[in-house]
Design a binder for these strands. Structure first.
Lengths: 181, 181
DNA sequence: ATTACCATGTAATTAGTTACATGATTAG
DNA sequence: CTAATCATGTAACTAATTACATGGTAAT
């Protein structure tokens, strides 16, 4: 499937980036839904260059630090567009280690089960405030964020990440009540 | 992390299973949140046997078909319990190829974007009716499903899978309205 | 007979993480 | 000067998928 290939092409379609910049992007906005380590990114960039989907210029940072700044080619844009419009099947499995534990809950005592769920609730709760702030920043800047806004993609990932987390938390709360004890 | 190891131990803790049975389990209930192919399961079972966490008996099906029926050992139960009570960090990234496309939405026309979201909504909608039925079956059988029920783990995965899907869909609907056109 | 399913394995490849390795720049 | 960050790569390993390979069972 080579999803990383398309992730990189999509990022470069927004503007020129170095391998390091791409690594950083995966720690920000889009990191909620896709990421990769630099050790996977550099070889992929090399491959994409060989395939003609991207190209790079060497830029000198300071006096000697060589930086490779990548751009998407016309061929790369075509490839990206083809993927964007191609139907990608929804995977049957969305892996979630906590839910695997939940399925095996009968191997725990009621107290242990309650602790497991409460710990999960606490950890999941920590991310929400941060996401809510980011979303309000975006919405405050421009309300409502519309399709034509350059921030629309950002808005989509933020709002989805927030809702996903909220949904998880409300389910956890209901299940904690159900476990009782 | 070896999550598959614990997935297998957890399944065997509920009862004896062959490698084929484990493969089947990953296509049912728990398959929403974890799965593996038989080509990954058989070597893992071999490793778990060597490590003393599981053991097997050979059972003859029909006249010559040899089946290995695995059981969890005391050591395996200890190992499973340790993992169940160990805190597993929530991954920063929960990969979702559709959301990656959503982030790159600016590379699409308004019509293409709308189509992308509508297709996703349609596909996501298909799973819901099935999940809803299963959950009602379970709740009809025993209302409310409580911690002490042998079906509680099943109930947890079904209700979570359903809510996850419902949350996704309601978000998709709101975003389709926002894309407009 | 033939089809769907039961049953177990290995080989090859792709995807992803952790560790190894090096060096420059910038801000305090 | 020193710590955080910028910058790029490779090596080793683990995880997971796809393909190869074989054969038995049960129901029609």
């Amino acid at each position: 499937m080579r999803v990383l290939k398309y992730a990189i092409l999509g990022l470069l379609d927004k503007g020129q980036l170095s391998g390091y910049d791409i690594t950083s992007k995966f720690k920000e906005e889009i990191g909620h839904f896709w990421s990769a380590k630099h050790s996977q990114i550099y070889p992929e960039l090399k491959k994409l260059t060989e395939e003609g989907f991207v190209e790079y210029q060497i830029v000198i940072q300071g006096t000697k630090l060589e930086k490779k700044v990548y751009s998407i080619t016309e061929l790369g844009k075509k490839e990206l567009h083809e993927w964007m419009n191609r139907y990608s099947p929804i995977p049957d499995t969305q892996k979630d280690e906590f839910m695997l534990k939940a399925y095996f809950v009968s191997s725990l005592s009621q107290e242990e089960a309650k602790q497991l769920f409460k710990d999960q609730l606490e950890k999941r709760g920590q991310a929400i405030a941060f996401l809510e702030e980011r979303l309000q920043e975006l919405e405050g800047k421009e309300e409502p964020v519309s399709f034509s806004s350059p921030d629309f993609g950002h808005y989509l990932v933020l709002s989805r990440a927030l809702e996903r987390e909220k949904g998880y938390i409300s389910w956890l709360e209901r299940m904690i009540a159900k476990i009782g004890g």
